[in-house]
Amino acid sequence: MAVTFAATPRTQQESAPRPPRRRGRAARRNLVGWGFAAPATLVVVGLSIFPAVWAFFISRTKWNGIAPATDLGWRNYERIVQDPDAVAAAKHTLLLTVLFVPGSILLGILIAVALNQKIRLLGFYRTCIFVPYVASAAATGILASFVFNPQFGAANEVLRRIGLPTQGFLENPNQALVVICLIALWGEVGFCAVIYLAALQDIPAELVEAATVDGASRWRVFLHITLPELRPVTVFTTIWQTITAMQLFDLIYTTTRGGPMNSTQTVVYYIYELAFQTQRLGYGAALAYLLFAVTLLLTLVVMWYSRRNGSESLR
């Protein structure tokens, strides 16, 4: 004898498609959300894409901002390679990046490890580390220009007290770029420390405890567990600090203005001089686009290298 079961109303309700009324409500909610977000989105996109496209057209012209522009094609880009000032500015930018990026990452990791311990006044120390990053870079540069002043600066006063010879610092062509790098590290290392501190607190405690039980020392735990877990954060900070170093302008403007003897003239400051002091807007825009291309290329190389090493380590 066959037994048949009738579908219950609940089963029929679950198997039935979503009513058109619910779909209409979801569509109206999406439209309302886009209605609030669309104006701000258009403003942000317009203020970023339109100037970039307009700057590209300017980079192919000779224009001083007043007279009609003259089309030059790609000649502005060809002149960059033959410009000794542009080559010197590129070397200064490269040196600043090589000094700043590894230094900020290394100091950030060390400070984050120290602030990840259970010590007294921990919140106060963390605040002190992050305050220089929040402070204005222009104010930092003005303060540093007084600290490193060769005549009455606090840095030379300390050297006099301990019996060491005074230094020229920002007025010495051989020291000015290194001093600017130290000032930039003082202002930016707090960002790296906070990022690494958050990453350290996300590392599973079970991994560290298991390695400790197996007899691993603190150094081996840090080398084989902590550092591999920090790899994504290191990639992010490397890219971020590279962009920061290559676009450093405010510290140079408030301390040396590219001097002495153009020893601290970076690419960004050279672009500023071309565009706003000599009114060579076309050539300055071309150099700015070249800087963007180099920054993008370095970012892609760092990401590719990190993924390649990560995949090899998994093998």
Rank of each mutant, 00 (worst) to 15 (best):
V3Y: 11
Q12T: 13
A16C: 00
R22V: 15
G24R: 15
R25G: 07
R25A: 13
R28I: 03
N30R: 15
F36N: 01
A37G: 10
S48R: 00
F50T: 12
A52K: 02
F57I: 03
T61G: 08
N64K: 02
I66Y: 14
A67Q: 10
E78N: 03
P84N: 11
T93R: 07
L94Q: 06
T97V: 04
G108V: 09
I109T: 03
L110M: 14
I111R: 02
Q117N: 11
R120D: 08
R120A: 11
F130P: 05
V134N: 05
S136G: 05
A137D: 01
A138Y: 02
A144S: 00
F152Q: 12
R160W: 06
I162H: 10
N174P: 01
L182G: 15
I183F: 04
I195V: 15
Y196R: 01
A198R: 08
L200D: 11
V208H: 15
E209S: 12
V221P: 01
L223A: 15
L227Q: 08
L227V: 14
R231I: 01
P232H: 05
P232E: 08
V235E: 15
T237I: 14
I252V: 13
T254I: 02
R257N: 11
P260S: 02
P260K: 01
T266G: 10
Y270F: 12
E273I: 00
L274K: 15
Q279I: 04
G284K: 13
L300G: 14
L300Q: 13
V302K: 11
Y305L: 15
R307W: 01
N309D: 14
N309A: 11
